[in-house]
Each structure stands twice: as C-alpha cells, then as structure tokens.
Computed example of a mutant assay.
Amino acid sequence: MMTLGEHMGQLIEGIALRSFCESVKLDHLLFKLMVYQRLFKQDENLNLSTHTTCRLGKWYLAPETQARYGDNRDFQQLNEPHRIVHETAHKALHAAQEKNWSQVLLEINDMESASLDVSALLDNLSH
C-alpha cells in the first residue's frame, strides 16, 4: 500500500514533468519564431542552439533524466525528431544565405514536421 507521502511525491513529480514539457514546447516555438524572423529579414546570423545545448537537450542528456525516463518509449524516441528540428533550422538559414529558396522550404517543412513529433512525444511523456 502506498503511503500518502509517496503518493504526494509522485503527484508533484508528475506536475513538475508536465510543467517542464510545456515550457520546452514554448522554448521550441520561440526557437522556430526566431528562425522565421531571420529568414524574413534575411539576417546573416547563423548561430542557433543545437539539440544538445537547448534546455530540452540538456535535460534529455542529463544522467538523472536518463536514469529516470530511459526505459520510457516516448523518451527514447525524443532525441531523433528533436535533433531534426535543430538541424533543419540550421540548414534552412544556410540555404537562405545561398538564396536557395526551394531548399529553405524543404528544410522548414522538415523542421515543422519534426517539431510536431517532439510536441506529441512530450505530451505522451508528461501523461
């Protein structure tokens, strides 16, 4: 039988995970907005966070996170689409520098598709 303290601990952990997942989804929305702004302004700044340096990537790679969620299927699937979000954003900005607009559109499409996957996996993980 679970004690009240154990139950409260699990409840608080669940709330914290849901809050974190929502906040990193917002982070990635802002990341994509910045990419679109740079494309629109034809900004030459190509510096973007990578999938290992953003908040989600740092959390994902942390040993305590791996120990806690490493057996979770949604967690295991998170890294690949997350990597794609960041890599295709970088590729889109580089293609824009070369004025290769068809390539920009392809990369942005892939970025958005992978972003939907990341969001769905985070939703699954947090419930």
Results as ranks from 00 to 15, higher is better:
residue 55 R to P: 01
residue 32 K to V: 07
residue 54 C to P: 07
residue 119 S to F: 10
residue 93 L to C: 11
residue 117 D to R: 14
residue 94 H to A: 11
residue 4 L to I: 12
residue 104 V to D: 08
residue 87 E to F: 04
residue 96 A to K: 09
residue 93 L to D: 06
residue 75 F to P: 02
residue 120 A to N: 10
residue 91 K to P: 00
residue 106 L to M: 12
residue 28 H to S: 01
residue 68 R to Y: 02
residue 34 M to I: 01
residue 14 G to C: 05
residue 112 E to Q: 12
residue 46 L to A: 07
residue 51 H to Q: 09
residue 79 N to I: 15
residue 94 H to M: 13
residue 56 L to V: 00
residue 27 D to V: 00
residue 25 K to V: 02
residue 111 M to K: 05
residue 101 W to N: 13
residue 98 E to T: 13
residue 90 H to A: 14
residue 115 S to M: 15
residue 64 E to A: 08
residue 15 I to S: 08
residue 54 C to I: 04
residue 46 L to F: 05
residue 35 V to T: 04
residue 94 H to K: 13
residue 29 L to S: 05
residue 14 G to N: 13
residue 32 K to C: 05
residue 44 E to Y: 04
residue 107 E to D: 14
residue 42 Q to R: 15
residue 76 Q to S: 10
residue 68 R to S: 05
residue 108 I to F: 02
residue 11 L to S: 14
residue 9 G to D: 13
residue 65 T to P: 05
residue 118 V to S: 05
residue 66 Q to K: 14
residue 5 G to T: 15
residue 30 L to R: 08
residue 114 A to K: 11
residue 93 L to V: 10
residue 96 A to V: 03
residue 20 F to D: 04
residue 23 S to N: 10
residue 27 D to I: 00
residue 69 Y to T: 02
residue 30 L to S: 01
residue 14 G to D: 08
residue 70 G to D: 09
residue 21 C to M: 06
residue 87 E to K: 12
residue 55 R to E: 05
residue 92 A to Y: 06
residue 86 H to L: 04
residue 67 A to I: 07
residue 59 W to I: 01
residue 35 V to G: 01
residue 4 L to Y: 12
residue 55 R to D: 02
residue 32 K to S: 08
residue 63 P to Y: 03
residue 117 D to I: 10
residue 49 S to Y: 03
residue 125 L to R: 01
residue 4 L to N: 13
residue 106 L to K: 13
residue 113 S to V: 11
residue 120 A to W: 05
residue 20 F to R: 03
residue 72 N to T: 09
residue 108 I to D: 05
residue 90 H to Y: 09
residue 122 L to F: 01
residue 56 L to R: 00
residue 80 E to F: 13
residue 99 K to T: 10
residue 50 T to L: 02
residue 112 E to V: 05
residue 97 Q to G: 13
residue 10 Q to V: 03
residue 54 C to F: 03
residue 73 R to M: 08
residue 104 V to R: 09
residue 78 L to I: 02
residue 17 L to S: 03
residue 33 L to K: 10
residue 104 V to N: 08
residue 84 I to W: 00
residue 17 L to Y: 03
residue 40 F to V: 04
residue 106 L to T: 13
residue 102 S to M: 12
